[in-house]
Amino acid sequence: MIWADQIVQGIFLGGYYALIACGLSFMFGVLRIINLAHGSIAVLSAYLVWMLADRWNVSPFLALVAIVPAMAAAGWLLQRTVLERSLRSGALTPLLSTFGLAVMLDNLLFEKFGADTRSLAPNIGDLAFNSWTVGGGVTIGQLALLTFGVALALLGGLQLFLNRTPLGRAIRATAEDADTAELVGIDSRRVYAAAAAIAIATVAIAGTFLGMRATFDPYTGPAQLIFAFEAIVIGGTGSLWGTLIGGIVLGVAQNLGSQVSPRGFLIAGHAVFFVVLAARFVLAGRDPRTLFGALRRAPI
């Protein structure tokens, strides 16, 4: 049953999409910014992990321990130096800033690492290709399962963090109404910077899984941004879990599309994105501004 297998693989691929979408969704939910450099930052993280793994022969997972805090710091810095300033000259300006940043990052990566495609797969040994056969022609890759598990843990962990911790509550309050948050003693600048740090830290994790499950090159970033965006919009239920659903729908559609034609993978993904978007406009006529709002709703 090739179709059953493709659906299962699609679900697991959805786990990766949820992982990469997590930071984009989080940043939009809190900062109201769509970070167009999102995919490029994921690829940058993949390169950083690859450098550590390759040069000192450490496991990518160990390298992550160093890269995640570093990228969190970069996220903090990004907010304080770039986003905070660009938001001051209008809601659209951060799009321009982050797009400029993306172009810069992609080409700097090309300058440093060249056009060769890289992968972290060689650094994780058997994990890269080991799988279990569960019957009916369905196999489950160990790495795919791990990716899915990490996505679940990350989304669940973020949700818990937002609902149960003081900083999480402060982030939700600021996301909802930054001016009023200030009036109850929350320094919105610091909360924004913390949120950006968290978002970019999750991007580092996603980038590492990108590197382990596939190859990447300096210009892989934009595609990752687009997949992440599609997963969020397809999920669109207003929660981080919606992102997981969206990722799975996207992954399944792509895998089924690839069975139809070699180019079907990407076409089916984009097509599903537009169909879901159209359906939402037609059926509910709802305000598309709430498509993203992962953090604007009541706690679950």
Binding site: I34, L36, F229, V233, I267, H270, A271, F274
Partner: peptide
Amino acid sequence: FALRLQGGEFAIGMWVFAELAHLLVNL
């Protein structure tokens, strides 16, 4: 269709459209 998307959603939604147009032209 596109104009119902706001701000960043429009920006990146148009990017998806460009990707799709590219793929379809390739067909």
